[in-house]
Amino acid sequence: MSITSLVDYLKARKTEYITGAMEVTLSAITGFFIAGIILQSMGYNALSIFNIMITGGVSDLSHLAGKSAPLVMTGLAFSIPLMAGVFNIGGESQLYMGALAGLVGTYYSGNILIGLVLGFLAGAFWGWLMAALRVYRGINEVITAIMLNWTAYYFIIYLIIKYLPNPEKPYMSIQLPQSEMLSMNTTFLLSVLGALAAYYIIYYTDLGYKMRVSGFNPKTAQYSGFDPSKSILFSMALGGGLAGFGGALLVIGVSSGIDTTMTSLYGLGFTGIGVGLLGRNHPIGIIFSSLFFADLIIGGQWVELETGAPPYVSDTIIGIIVIALSAPYAYKKLVELYRLRRR
């Protein structure tokens, strides 16, 4: 796209951008305002807690990078299927599967690339499975995802304890040696590349275009000769694959293994839902929203140390701010989706 056409494009979308920006501003103010009132009424200094939360994450950029890398991926794992009209809350277990495959692949081959590719494929398979149950068996993907999330959770704990235990550390799986790991900064770089690749697929290939058309209206897709079922399968496989890639990145770049309590993996997929919504379903937006999320999550951990507020205080604040920021968009998307389903 040339510069002039880009300017044209931006001009044509002026209304959307302005309302979007206003919505975000309004939501941010509302979120911080409500959170502030709650903090004050609990007897904490709201401004200083906000300050810790926001600056706490930025103070260690490589931590921030390592924390946001998997979130970029799970954010995309939620958003891409949403473009095709599917509600993917299975990012959680797609990430698990990717983490497992990434660990096993890298550990036994000694090659990071193999680990990353296997991670992608494992996540893609898991996402595809959820979509297939919807497309071929008519099972609501949300229910499938909830059940498969737990299936994967216990399956991985079982595998780690039974087949991949770490002889030195009973709470750990086999671990990658430092020499076979990436730096946290590199994982973030790879996640950005992943987001750009997703952007290319969504906006520059027929698969992405068909997927978006199906998401807006499956009947239009049929009319145009695109199979909406294929789009659902494709979007879930792509989304799942990216979540799996994120899981592999996490293991290869940050955690080196998976602990038997799964704390290194747990929650990243669910957080991805917020990341995707806050990023307005756009790959580039998701990069920024995942940084924002990672910042709050890391900063939130400093709150206890600095102010003595128990950890649930910062969790609550994150929750309120995220809900406020993503609620208007989520509401619109849900209404759209619901309307389509009813037809």
Binding site: A12, T205, D206, L207, Y209, R212, V213, F216, N217, K219, T220, Y223, S224, G225
Partner: peptide, 27 residues
């Protein structure tokens, strides 16, 4: 409502049934 996607641009709507004219060999 079926022949158009209201939330897409004129250009994107022009592609619906003309996709074959717009794709390169690498899709």
């Amino acid at each position: 409502g079926i022949g158009l996607i209201f939330d897409m641009s004129i250009t994107e709507n022009s592609m619906l049934t003309n996709l074959h004219l717009i794709l390169s060999k690498g899709r």
